[in-house]
Amino acid sequence: MEFLNAIVALSNYVLVPALAYGSQLALGALGVTLIYGILRFSNFAHGDTMAFGTMITILMTWWMQSVGIGLGPLPTALLALPFGIAGCAAMVLLTDRVVYRFYRAQKVKPVILVIVSMGVMFVMNGLVRFVIGPGDQRFADGERFIITALDFRMMTGLKEGLAIKTTQGITLVTAVIVVGVLFWFLTHTRTGKSMRAYSDNEDLALLSGINPERVVLVTWLIVAALATVAGTLYGLDKSFKPFTYFQLLLPIFASAIVGGLGSPLGAIAGGFVIAFSEVTITYAWKKVLVYLMPESLEPSGLVQLMSTDYKFAVSFVILLIVLLFRPTGLFRGKAV
């Protein structure tokens, strides 16, 4: 019984939240890694691209809520998501037209594109705050829990409860679907293969008649979709605040690099590695340990290795360790 209680407590506070957070990071890191693989620069504007897509989704959600369109127990935001993706796609394509294409034509070094993307980041960041405000926005509705802690306790008779939020369930299901579709697209469609070819060897791809502008266009569309989905899921799960998305850039980059920049599989693995380490290291283990240890050994402190304030530091320690021992990341991406 004690052992079961420990497992449940662990799932409730560590496994379930980390799985949801990991999925969100993985979706974000996939966008970063695709841009890196195909456009060959680290896109610092990715966090704010997520914020922009999410903002459109939120505005649509509010409108739908006001006219009474909804999905019943599911959040209305899921209905608004396609509009968010479309808005975000329009935004990134416009940015590409106006900004990146100019630099691409000059064949500038990647580092210049990185700086350019920082400029884009600040513009997008300002735009989002200007439109929706810098504060916290709530837009989640529908059923809050798939199963509440109380229900779980009643059902199982255990002392510990396991609560699974609807948003956590939706995050996981959506992430699995999106990743599945993306991988099918990359491996089984001609466009996907062109993208992989372009990422693998740009010169050869060009001389094989692959139209680079088309590859770039499709890449941005996919990235816009990934960013909006990731941003909306994160916003549903936690809350939407433009500055939080700007900060999310750090663990997202850490995930992409840990997995190996340019490797989609790596981005997913990296997302979960980062999420699990952040959550486990900043979690107060007392609750779990109390169940597992004999009474005399029970800890009196919280057994929290680090305060949650330092969670971004965790991702960077992992990042440094991986780069020291495996510079190309877990899945052998391109060297950074």
């Binding site: 469609t189 001609r190 466009t191 070819a197 094989s208 008649g209 139209n211 088309r214």
Partner: peptide
Amino acid sequence: MVPGDQAGER
């Protein structure tokens, strides 16, 4: 990969 303008590109 080589031949351009394949149906699957759309």
